[in-house]
Computed example of a mutant assay.
Amino acid sequence: MTERADAARNRQALLRAADALLNDHAPGHVSLDQVAAAAGVGKGTVFRRFGSRTGLFRELLAERAARLGAAMDSGPPPLGPGAPPGQRLLAFVDELALLAAENIRLIAAHERACAADPYSDPTYQRWHRHLHALIGELRPDGDADFLAHALLGGYDGELVRRMITAGGVARLRLAVRDLALRVAGVDHVA
């Protein structure tokens, strides 16, 4: 079913408004009333489109993660298919570190909105499936499910903020690469 033009405009206006408000306010202080007002629509439009703050922040994160998802599925190696699993793992954690660093406030707002069930988020599930598959190839003897969750824990919003504050994006990337190598059970990837 094709989205109506006015619904598509409202969706984009709401996502832009939420993004702008996250840049100006603490993640816990962005309300649906503020988002609706900034987008120039009624609060009912926000609820019809997203259902809740959780739905709004899930969709905003999914939009930000779409490029990464496309690269994982069909982009060039090493992020995309065709590279050995260790190279793909490192490429993925590098890209996810950049995504998290560029979207710290969104990640924090998303975590607050999804706090009741963070593992049900579709973007999280997609990342987890990808890591689970790669880790499963690298560590068939390990618990790939747990290790994928543990690795994704390195992208906690507050942890990302602290790491970047005390060393920039380079520190975050090196830290998650080190963790990924340890999870993979190797000291380097060829």
Rank of each mutant, 00 (worst) to 15 (best):
A170C: 04
A62P: 04
G154I: 01
A108G: 00
P140F: 11
L159Q: 15
D94H: 14
A97W: 06
H128D: 06
R4V: 00
T165K: 13
L172S: 12
A66Q: 15
G86E: 07
E3L: 05
G167C: 08
D117T: 02
L179H: 05
G167W: 06
L106F: 07
R48S: 14
N10V: 01
M72K: 06
A166W: 11
K43A: 15
I135N: 07
A5W: 03
A175E: 08
A36N: 07
P140T: 06
A108P: 00
P78V: 00
R67S: 13
L15A: 06
P118A: 03
H130W: 10
R58T: 11
A17M: 06
A70M: 05
V46F: 07
G69M: 04
H149V: 08
R129Y: 06
A26G: 12
R162C: 04
P85H: 12
V93M: 08
L79Q: 10
L181W: 07
R53T: 11
V160P: 12
P78W: 03
R53Y: 04
D94L: 04
Q12M: 11
F47Q: 09
H132I: 01
D33G: 08
L151M: 10
A18M: 04
D24F: 01
R105D: 12
L68M: 11
E59D: 15
R177V: 03
I107G: 02
A133P: 01
R139M: 05
R49F: 01
R139D: 09
D94N: 14
V183G: 11
L90D: 11
H130P: 00
A190I: 01
R177P: 06
N23I: 00
M163F: 08
L134M: 13
R171P: 00
P85E: 09
I164H: 10
N10P: 00
A70W: 02
E158N: 14
L56H: 04
G55Q: 07
F92G: 06
N10C: 02
Y119P: 00
S120G: 09
I164F: 08
P118C: 04
N10G: 00
L151R: 06
G153Q: 12
R105W: 01
H132G: 00
G51L: 03
F57Q: 04
L159W: 13
A13I: 01
A166Q: 15
L134T: 06
T54V: 02
R64K: 15
E137R: 12
G55E: 10
E137W: 06
